[in-house]
Simulated scan of single mutants.
Amino acid sequence: MANKRLQKLIKNIRRRSRGQESNNRRENDVDSQEQSPSETQNSALESQQDDEEFHEEDEDEVLPSQRQQNRRGRTVMKDVHALHHNDLLHVTFNERGQPYEDLQPVLANYVGTIARNGVLLPLDYLDWRKVPKHKLEEAWKLVIARFKISAQH
């Protein structure tokens, strides 16, 4: 049963990363199209007209819907936090000691959720080297509890 849960987690991760890659490709395709100077001027004039029309509209109706569309929410990594303590995600590293393959973004996002925990790692310190060792060890224990990472890394 644990293997099915891990396989489902990895499958979801792959699907999300493919979606992000396709979004990046679309953005690059739009950016790579070159415009002539006259097209650039026309688009600038159109954007100014759009801005003027926007200010004429009732702002209360437009702004809440835009705010909801542009927000993606916090990264909470529910799948990883919900894993059983016996189920560890095996992270592979390259020759430079950098994680890679499917679990690299999962590890990075999970560490990000830990780093945003103000109780565990307070914002009082401007430099990681000045954070007390016991706080860093607590954070590392949380990472080790979910991921199988060799001692050399």
Rank of each mutant, 00 (worst) to 15 (best):
31 D>P: 00
32 S>A: 14
32 S>P: 00
34 E>Q: 06
37 P>G: 02
38 S>C: 01
41 Q>Y: 11
42 N>Y: 11
43 S>W: 06
46 E>R: 15
49 Q>F: 13
50 D>Q: 13
51 D>F: 15
52 E>N: 09
52 E>V: 15
54 F>M: 10
55 H>G: 11
58 D>P: 06
58 D>Q: 08
60 D>R: 10
60 D>I: 07
62 V>F: 14
64 P>G: 07
68 Q>S: 13
68 Q>A: 15
70 N>P: 00
71 R>E: 12
73 G>L: 10
73 G>V: 06
78 K>D: 15
78 K>C: 02
80 V>S: 05
81 H>Q: 12
81 H>I: 04
81 H>G: 01
83 L>K: 08
83 L>A: 09
85 H>R: 11
88 L>N: 08
89 L>D: 06
90 H>I: 15
92 T>C: 09
94 N>C: 09
95 E>F: 15
95 E>N: 14
95 E>Q: 14
96 R>Y: 15
97 G>A: 07
98 Q>P: 00
99 P>E: 12
101 E>H: 11
101 E>V: 04
103 L>N: 15
105 P>Q: 12
105 P>G: 08
105 P>R: 09
107 L>I: 04
108 A>K: 13
108 A>P: 00
108 A>C: 06
109 N>G: 10
109 N>C: 06
109 N>Y: 11
110 Y>D: 05
111 V>P: 01
111 V>Q: 04
111 V>W: 01
114 I>H: 04
114 I>Q: 05
115 A>H: 06
115 A>V: 07
118 G>K: 07
120 L>F: 05
121 L>T: 04
121 L>H: 03
121 L>G: 03
122 P>Y: 04
122 P>M: 03
124 D>M: 01
125 Y>Q: 04
126 L>D: 11
127 D>H: 10
128 W>E: 06
129 R>I: 01
129 R>Y: 05
130 K>W: 03
131 V>P: 02
133 K>W: 02
135 K>N: 04
136 L>A: 05
137 E>N: 08
139 A>R: 02
140 W>A: 07
140 W>E: 06
142 L>P: 00
143 V>R: 01
